[in-house]
Amino acid sequence: MMDLKKTGQHGGYGRLPATAPLANPYVPFQYEDPPKYEPRTAIVRGTLFPGLDLPFMNKVNKNELPVTPLTELQTLGFVIQELALYLDTHRDDKEAFEVFKDFQKLYAKGREQYEKECGPLTHMSAMEHGYSWLNDPWPWEYAANREV
């Protein structure tokens, strides 16, 4: 017999309270205010959260992205995306929401800098030198990675 005291009968170790609905898939909730990677580590790992970083054959991405206005914006955008998905299921986590808002501000600044140097990101962006929306490179091209 399993020792229920040791395994934690009321959750915490994979067991559920006796009143929980059966015949239903369970994924444990991520704790609130979870530890976070630095943004530049987060983007190459593919997650902001060390607790969710579960690489194949334990081969982790150790590469560093070159520091350019594009990767700066991609990094900030990635943290916002990751926090948005977290907040979708943790809407009451006030600390995470504060971090989310801080990154929104950083993104707005980064975006302004990027568009000044590299051109418009959307049709809503300012275009001061003609219809620069069309200018190469497009995002899927090798040349999109130029280091300014």
């Binding site: 898939p25 369970y26 991520q30 190459v44 790992r45 970083d53 590469n63």
Partner: peptide
């Protein structure tokens, strides 16, 4: 490097769908 990034996103999405179920 890109494939590992995309693979890890699947792990994160799985977690969020599980939480959504809860």
């Amino acid at each position: 490097n890109v494939i590992k990034f995309l693979r890890e996103r699947e792990v994160v999405h799985f977690q969020r769908f599980g939480e959504a179920m809860q």
